[in-house]
C-alpha cells in the first residue's frame, strides 16, 4: 500500500468534523435523548398548567429558574457532555482518536460540539415553550433562550472536562449540580461566583427585571463568564488530553 505521509493536520476543521460526527453518534443514544425529552416535557407541562392560573412574572421566572436552569439544563448537559469523553475513556475507544496525528484540542472541542448538538436545541426549545406557555411578556422568552443557551455551553464545557479529569464523571457531575450549586453556592455571594447557575439566573433576572437571590451579575458579565467558563474548560480538557495515559 502507498499512502500520503501522515503529519499533524494543518487544517483541523476536517478532523474536527469527522470526530464530531463520530461522537454525536456515540453520545446521542435513544435512552439519553428520551431522558432529556421527558425532563423537558415535564417543565413544559408545568408551564402549561401554570399558564392557566394567571401566574405573576415572579411565578413564571421562578419556574424557569428552579426547574429549567437549576435542574433540566445542568442534568441534561451532564448526561450528554460527560458521556462524550468519559464513555470513550471507559470503553477504551479513546485510543482510536488519541493515536491520530491531530491537534490535541480537536477531540475535546468535538466532544463539546457533540454534547451541545442534542442539549442546546432541546433545552432552549423547552425553555422557550415553557416561557410562552406561562403567558408572560416577551422578555421572559428572550431571557430564557439566552440564559439556557449560554448555560448549555458552559455546563457542557465543564462536564466534557470532567470526563477527562475524573473517573465516575456522572457522580462527580451530580455532586457539583446538587451539592455545590444546589446548597453551597446558595449560601453566600462568595461561593455563588463559582456556580454556573448564578450567571444563568442573573441573565434571567436582569432581562425580566425580576429579582432572584444571588443573581446580581450584569447580563454582559454573565454571558462573558459563561463563555469564558466553557473556553477555559476546553483548554483544561485539551491539556489533560494531551498528557493523559490512554488505555
Amino acid at each position: 500500500m502507498k499512502a500520503s505521509m501522515p503529519t499533524v493536520a494543518t487544517k483541523p476543521s476536517a478532523p474536527l468534523w469527522l470526530v464530531y460526527r463520530v461522537l454525536v453518534r456515540q453520545v446521542a443514544t435513544r435512552a439519553r435523548v428520551a431522558a432529556l425529552v421527558v425532563l423537558s416535557s415535564f417543565m413544559m407541562l408545568l408551564g402549561f398548567i401554570g399558564g392557566n392560573h394567571d401566574p405573576t412574572p415572579d411565578d413564571a421566572v421562578g419556574l424557569i429558574s428552579t426547574l429549567g436552569l437549576a435542574v433540566i439544563l445542568p442534568v441534561g448537559s451532564l448526561i450528554f457532555a460527560s458521556g462524550a469523553m468519559a464513555d470513550l475513556r471507559e470503553d477504551q475507544t479513546l485510543v482510536y482518536l488519541w493515536l491520530r496525528p491531530m491537534r490535541s484540542w480537536v477531540v475535546p472541542l468535538a466532544a463539546l460540539l457533540a454534547a451541545l448538538t442534542p442539549v442546546l436545541p432541546v433545552t432552549v426549545l423547552a425553555g422557550a415553550v415553557t416561557a410562552e406557555l406561562t403567558g408572560n411578556e416577551n422578555s421572559l422568552t428572550q431571557a430564557t433562550v439566552l440564559a439556557t443557551a449560554m448555560g448549555a455551553v458552559a455546563y457542557c464545557g465543564v462536564f466534557v472536562a470532567f470526563g477527562l479529569l475524573v473517573r465516575r464523571t456522572l457522580l462527580w457531575g451530580l455532586m457539583y449540580v446538587l451539592i455545590w450549586e444546589g446548597f453551597i453556592a446558595g449560601a453566600g455571594r462568595g461561593a455563588a461566583q463559582f456556580a454556573i447557575r448564578s450567571y444563568t439566573r442573573s441573565i434571567l433576572s436582569r432581562m425580566t427585571k425580576v429579582d432572584l437571590n444571588l443573581a446580581d451579575f450584569s447580563r454582559t458579565a454573565a454571558v462573558v463568564v459563561l463563555i469564558a467558563t466553557a473556553a477555559a474548560s476546553i483548554v483544561l480538557a485539551t491539556i489533560r488530553y494531551s498528557r493523559m495515559d490512554v488505555d
Binding site: M5, P6, T7, V8, V22, R25, Q26, D91, Q92, T93, V95, Y96, L99, R100, P101, D247
Partner: peptide
C-alpha cells in the same frame, strides 16, 4: 504517532 498503526488488546470499537 501517525506513522504507527496500533491494534489494541481491548475489544472496543465505535
Amino acid at each position: 504517532r501517525g506513522r504507527i498503526g496500533l491494534v489494541p488488546q481491548q475489544d472496543a470499537l465505535f
